[in-house]
Design a protein around this nucleic acid. Structure first.
Lengths: 239, 239
DNA sequence: CGATTTATTTATCGATCGATAATTTCCGGG
DNA sequence: CCCGGAAATTATCGATCGATAAATAAATCG
């Protein structure tokens, strides 16, 4: 266990030891620091110490401060690594491709999306960040709604014969959030809570999307009708 | 800011001050400590210091250790306070009441359930605990599945004409998890991430449940069919 | 009232944290 | 080969953490 090299300033009575100090190009060091910080913070949260990070890297703790002015800057780099570098613009374009049935589009998206975010690093850091109150989650959820849910909702309108030109109603968007949250929470149970999942991801996604699409038509029509101007021709009264 | 009383052992040059020390019955103190610890930990996580807890209570920090052998024992008391004392056995009995339509039962349950857990204390501590890796979340999710989701799934079977005697298939239970997770995640977005929610809880629940029930019948029948023994006529035999 | 009990405070320890200054070692350019 | 700059280390500071021992003050009981 006590590898002793790159340890803290404890007055160890170890022999001077062959402590070598491999020199690395700055950009490589920086990327290596961020990568290892993602791993460490995803496991232990942002309260994890810079000394443990240094130990995992095989370097001494003050070296971190040559590359990051403060720990908060390191954390900010971790955020960028995960939530900017792993977002795929193809998600939106795929969801907007009207040559493909909406069910196929949704299945393809949620398959790729879950493969991307259902990792300990992504999910745990996302939850840690949310509990810390940083604006990362707000911004990320805004992107999800703008780039994913609203395109899906607009496509669903066309599929069920509603006017796609109308602005999406909050209730409509919210309905797609519940599907999204249901799939997201599958990942939380699997990755964060470590449950044994007796149903594999692909099956879960198919069942969730089919259930949603099977029931969404009627609910979306009801939502639309409830917001339509009263007094018009036939009144699909709400239940 | 520096209220100075109940402060740490810093050599302050303040005057002795009228430091009074109100004496409280032990059980009241204990309950007061747990209550305030729930509040503090839900805001700042379990890394919050015992000194801040003492400050909020208007007592000194070592007094905490007269009532809790260690900080972990205090945390355990916080878990009990939230996840045992706030569970309602009426949830299960209400869900199993077959004199009421399943839709009504589900709406009533999710209305009361969300009122119970959609608080910063409940949700934030739940997420903090999950990230810490304690078994609280495993046990709680097990209770949700046993006391809530499986009763709902069994009721849904009867409602759509499937054999309620058969054991529930994992895929069936998982489907109800997606609905549950979708509603749960609404609370996370509202309470933990602090989003402005343009759709109120009751409307979200009605739409989510109606969408689910509208699409679940076909999917549940498909699940059942896929697990039925091939070649037989109509055999609702359990696998 | 005085004696006893105990809730509460004062004072402090050892460990750990983020961060900085000073020193040493590595490496490329002349 | 040596020299200058930068990478990496050693050493350390001040703050904060959980926890403990000893002193003090409030309630209880005779």
């Amino acid at each position: 266990m006590a590898d002793s090299r790159a340890s803290d300033g404890d007055s160890d009575d170890m022999v001077p030891a062959p402590r070598r100090r491999a020199r690395v190009r700055p950009e490589e060091r920086y990327a290596e620091f961020v990568r290892t910080a993602v791993e460490l913070f995803s496991e232990e949260g942002f309260e994890a110490g810079t000394r443990e990070l240094a130990q995992r890297l095989g370097v001494t703790q003050p070296l971190i401060y040559r590359y990051f002015p403060s720990k908060d800057d390191l954390i900010a780099a971790v955020y960028r690594e995960i939530y900017e570098n792993r977002w795929k613009s193809a998600w939106r374009t795929g969801l907007e491709d009207e040559s493909v049935p909406i069910r196929t589009r949704m299945l393809a998206f949620y398959t790729d999306y879950s493969d991307t975010i259902f990792t300990p690093e992504w999910l745990r850091i996302y939850l840690f960040a949310g509990l810390r109150g940083v604006d990362i989650n707000r911004r990320y959820a805004g992107a999800v709604e703008r780039e994913v849910l609203r395109p899906i909702a607009a496509a669903a309108r066309r599929a069920i014969g509603l006017d796609p030109a109308d602005d999406l109603l909050p209730e409509e968007v919210e309905l797609f959030w519940t599907l999204h949250g249901g799939i997201f929470y599958y990942g939380v149970r699997e990755i964060v809570y470590g449950f044994e999942m007796p149903v594999d991801r692909a099956t879960m996604i198919v069942n969730a999307v089919d259930t949603f699409l099977g029931g969404a038509t009627a609910v979306l029509r009801r939502i639309q009708a409830d917001h339509a101007p009263a007094g018009a021709g036939l009144r699909p009264k709400s239940g």
